[in-house]
């Protein structure tokens, strides 16, 4: 039976977290967590592989104890096993570190993995780095932004569209893919599945020590980059506001910019009789 690992992340439910300018921190308390959408697509891809070829799916995440939630959700959707990597000394890991930790966990707990699936990017940071870096850590062949996966024995055939190219690629297991949100629309979570996930399963939680990660490793594998400063991006520019009833606003705007619009669209909207705005 195929052994699949899906790496998922819990992200805030809203994409635009408010920033507390006084304390200089994000108001994470204002948004509950959810499974990162692209990760959910990756899990769906794994579930479809399982349905077609029969497979065992282990879902791994790293995060605080509350991140168990996304693992329960994964179980409800049809995953078979879970692993939560949870340790204060791992908090604040960048992608470099995260991929290294995930690699440690996979080596230790899913040694015979055939295929690792990750979301192509996360909704909260969108660096899209962890998947490729995990492949590098485990020295696996990998393809990012995958839309379709087929298996023929141990050969994986994947399709994707990147930079205006439609590509079909093949590689042999073990391998890694990051799954885009183009395809593999995640199934709805059934209520009975959720009830069962909580009833029968225990989330396996491991800490750094259990993974054989010592403080010295954290330092050595730790962040390569340092954030010097975070600031609000400037968005205000000299602009013009139109307010009022929609139809008036529209006419005011069209009257003022008729030439510009005509030029760009190559059709004249100028000089027609109409009610003049102010």
């Amino acid at each position: 039976m195929l052994k699949l690992v899906v790496c998922i992340k819990q992200v805030p439910m809203v994409t635009e977290l408010p920033w507390d300018e006084k304390t200089g921190t994000l108001r994470r308390d204002l948004a509950p967590g959810m499974m990162n959408p692209a990760c959910k697509h990756a899990l769906e891809a794994a579930l479809q592989i399982k349905e077609k070829y029969s497979a065992h799916i282990t879902v791994i995440t790293m995060g605080p104890p509350t991140a168990k939630e996304v693992l329960y959700e994964a179980l409800a959707m049809g995953a078979d096993g879970t692993l939560l990597i949870c340790d204060k000394i791992l908090a604040g890991s960048d992608t470099y570190m995260t991929s290294w930790i995930l690699a440690q966990a996979i080596r230790k707990h899913c040694a015979n993995v055939d295929l690792i699936l990750c979301g192509a990017f996360t909704a909260d940071s969108e660096t899209a780095q962890v998947g490729p870096q995990l492949a590098e850590s485990l020295n696996l062949p990998a393809v990012a932004y995958v839309e379709k996966i087929e298996m023929n024995g141990r050969i994986l055939r994947v399709r994707r569209i990147v930079d205006n190219f439609r590509e079909t690629m093949e590689m042999e297991c073990p391998a890694l893919v990051t799954v885009s949100i183009e395809n593999y629309l995640p199934r709805y979570v059934g209520l009975g599945g959720l009830q069962s996930a909580f009833g029968e399963n225990q989330i396996q939680v491991i800490d750094a020590t259990a993974l054989g990660i010592a403080a010295a490793d954290v330092k050595k594998q730790g962040s390569r980059t340092k954030v010097r400063r975070v600031f609000l991006r400037k968005t205000q520019k000299e602009n013009e506001y139109f307010t009022g009833v929609a139809v008036n606003v529209v006419n005011e705007f069209l009257n003022k910019y008729e030439r510009k619009i005509s030029t760009v669209i190559g059709k004249s909207i100028e000089g027609k009789e109409r009610t003049r705005g102010k």
Binding site: P32, M34, T66, K68, E69, Y72, E73, A76, Y188, V189, L191, L194, Q195, F198
Partner: peptide, 14 residues
């Protein structure tokens, strides 16, 4: 609890 939150999230999503 976590289960109730997930039940809510799932029903809400649907």
């Amino acid at each position: 609890c976590m289960k109730h939150k997930l039940i809510r999230d799932s029903a809400r999503h649907f």
